[in-house]
Each structure stands twice: as C-alpha cells, then as structure tokens.
C-alpha cells in the first residue's frame, strides 16, 4: 500500500497531478483511491490531494503519520502537510514560494528559512526541485506539477516509472500539450537524479 499527499496552492495543478498518478497506477492494474481537500477557495487557497494505491483500501483520505511521500508544489504547503508523513517518508518539493494573496495585509508573516529548517528537521529524504528553472526551460509556468511527478519517479517507494507517468500524461492531457509536459516530466526526473539543489 502506498500513500501520497500532494500539496499545493489553487491553480498549480495539484489535482491534475493526482489524476495522472492514479491513472498510471490503474494502468499497472493497481487499485486507487483519491480525494481532495480544497474548501471554498477557487484560486490561491491551499489544496491537498490524497492518493492511495494498493489492495484493501477503504478510505479515500490518507491518515496522519502514514504518507510515504509528500509532493509539495510549494514549500510552505509541503510543510503544512508534514503531519501526514510517516517516519522515514520522503518529500519532493519545489523550491519556489508562493506569496499568499493576503501577504500585504497585517498578521500574515512567515519566514522562509524557518520553513526549510522545519522540513529538514523532520524529513531526511528531501529532494528540492528548482521548478522555476524547469518551467523556464519548457516555456510555461503550468508544468511545475508535471516536473514534480518526474522527480518523484526516482523514488523507489513510488513503484511507478517515468515510462508509466509518460503514458498517463499521453492518455489524460490533450495532444497539443503532450510534448511540453513530457519534457517537464523528464527534466524533473533528471534534476532529482542529479540532486542539484539538495538542501
């Protein structure tokens, strides 16, 4: 059984990334359950997707302390989901912060280095991905989610290969954006392999 949490901000494609993972797992003949917690916010709110792969699954939600992997589209959102991560779990996270819409209003201060520190204190297997760089290389800000999936494919626990994910991308996304997303997937995988931006 594999439990994943995908954490991001509304508009980053968190839910789509969970769909791709689920499809890749189904293609492998595995059973899947997924769920989202989105709340009322349309854009800019926290979005958490739960993905569970394997036999004998009942709940669509992952329990606290049981996630094998957290995929963070944004560092503070990854940290928000830390209570889900089990001991020895892994985190793949994009390095770029997204300022909340309310950052300019009083009462919403946070410190980026404290967030990194806390992530590092609680998880030993973190790959930090320079998502911005990959998006630049692909020429679209929209492929960050896909780049992270690529990076995650290097994790042994995931049990899904880059090829599995490529196939899911081709099945689910419209044809005209296949090449750009396949590129993001591969760049994500490479950057994580190189570990170029490890903490």
């Amino acid at each position: 059984m594999l439990n994943l949490i995908l954490a991001g901000v509304g508009g980053q494609g968190t839910v789509l990334a969970s769909k791709l993972l689920a499809q890749a797992a189904i293609n492998r003949g595995l059973d899947v359950r997924t769920a989202e917690t989105i709340g009322m916010a349309q854009r800019g709110g926290s979005v958490t997707s739960h993905v569970r792969i394997g036999q004998d699954l009942y709940s669509p939600l992952v329990a606290l302390d049981t996630a094998d992997i957290i995929l963070g589209m944004e560092p503070s959102e990854a940290l928000r989901c830390l209570p889900y991560l089990k001991k020895g779990g892994s985190i793949v996270v994009s390095s770029k912060f997204i300022k909340p819409f309310t950052a300019s209003l009083p009462g919403s201060t946070y410190e980026e280095n404290l967030i990194w520190q806390c992530l590092g204190d609680h998880c030993k297997n973190i790959s930090v991905i320079d998502g911005g760089k990959i998006c630049d290389a692909c020429g679209s800000t929209k492929v960050l989610n896909i780049a992270l999936l690529g990076a995650a494919s290097n994790l042994r626990q995931l049990n899904l290969t880059l090829v599995d994910l490529e196939k899911a991308v081709q099945e689910i996304l419209p044809q005209k954006i296949h090449s750009i997303n396949l590129q993001a997937l591969n760049l994500g995988a490479q950057s994580a392999r190189k570990g170029e931006t490890a903490l």
């Binding site: 709340g39 709110g45 926290s46 928000r80 830390l82 201060t109 946070y110 410190e111 806390c118």
Partner: peptide
C-alpha cells in the same frame, strides 16, 4: 499516538 509537530508560522491562504 500522534506526536505533535511544532510548525513555524505558515502563510495563511483564506478564500478571497
């Protein structure tokens, strides 16, 4: 048992 993790202040993202 759930060991509580003390998280630093995180950005708040209320619906707007």
């Amino acid at each position: 048992k759930y060991e509580p993790i003390e998280l630093p202040p995180l950005p708040v993202r209320p619906p707007v």
